[in-house]
């Protein structure tokens, strides 16, 4: 079994048909437990109060926002190199999810920042680079919808994704150079010293896993929709030809 077999849409549809209910159920369970645990069974932190609970949405969303672009980068590369059609569709399906994740991270960050920093928005490097990432997602989706021929669109967005990845990273470092940050350091660190306390850490881990599973379920669902839409398109075109 290799991923190349799933370039065949029929095979992909058949396999995901079986996986999809499981991934939805698993995502619902882990996300449900993680969020309920994080929101109702965790003591309020000393100097943060109840607002600490926003991290159970903020951190996973932020992590997904970056990783979804990486996933799009990989799938675009697979498409560009091997003409793996399902791969291209998966990249297309992932982009709106990534954009929404970026938006969630920005909005929850603003909700947290208002009581803690006293401002909804600051031109902090992390905030700024997320805003730029959001713009990249918007451009990517706009290009997909603007080009009519699906193969041309897949090629162009693939190239855009590659170049965009380089510039998103470059913008991040440029933003760090440009302004000093308000944002705290990394939450997800293997370093025990700056690690958050275990009480907060375990529900957070569950939420992270839940977000990943949720993303997998969504991406499979959206890819299936894309495949069906393309089949419909092909049928319509055949009809018109006849």
């Amino acid at each position: 079994m290799s991923i190349w077999e799933y370039a065949n849409p029929v095979k992909f549809m058949k396999t995901t048909d079986r996986i999809l209910p499981w991934s939805v159920a698993l995502a619902a369970i882990t996300l449900g437990i993680g969020l309920v645990w994080g929101y109702f069974f965790v003591p309020a932190a000393e100097n943060f109060g109840g607002s600490v609970k926003v991290i159970y949405v903020h951190v996973p969303a932020a992590m997904m926002a970056i990783n979804i672009w990486v996933m799009m980068l990989v799938t675009s590369l697979i498409w560009l190199v091997r003409r793996h059609h399902v791969s291209a569709l998966a990249a297309k399906a992932a982009a709106p999810i990534g954009a929404v994740m970026t938006l969630i991270a920005l909005i929850t960050g603003a909700v947290w920042g208002q009581p803690m920093w006293g401002t909804w928005w600051a031109w902090d490097p992390r905030l700024t680079s997320f805003l730029i990432l959001f713009l990249f997602y918007l451009g990517y989706m706009a290009l997909w919808s603007a080009v009519e021929n699906p193969d041309t669109a897949a090629d162009l967005t693939g190239v855009l994704c590659l170049v965009g990845a380089v510039f998103a990273v470059l913008s991040r470092y440029a933003a760090y150079f440009w302004n000093q940050g308000l944002h705290q350091g990394s939450t997800l660190s293997m370093d025990e010293q700056q690690h958050i306390a275990d009480v907060y850490w375990f529900p957070l881990l569950l939420c992270l896993a839940g977000f990943i599973l949720f993303f997998i379920a969504l991406v499979l669902l959206r890819t299936r929709t894309e495949i069906r839409a393309r089949r419909l398109n092909a049928l319509e075109q055949r009809e018109r030809m006849a």
């Binding site: 730029i132 713009l135 990249f136 918007l138 451009g139 706009a142 290009l143 603007a146 855009l160 170049v163 965009g164 510039f167 998103a168 470059l170 913008s171 440029a174 933003a175 150079f177 440009w178």
Partner: peptide, 17 residues
């Protein structure tokens, strides 16, 4: 319009420095 949406984010590092 699409062109400006695509290109402007790429200009960020150049503009900053």
């Amino acid at each position: 319009l699409l062109l400006s949406l695509l290109v402007l984010p790429f200009y960020v590092p150049t503009l900053i420095f």
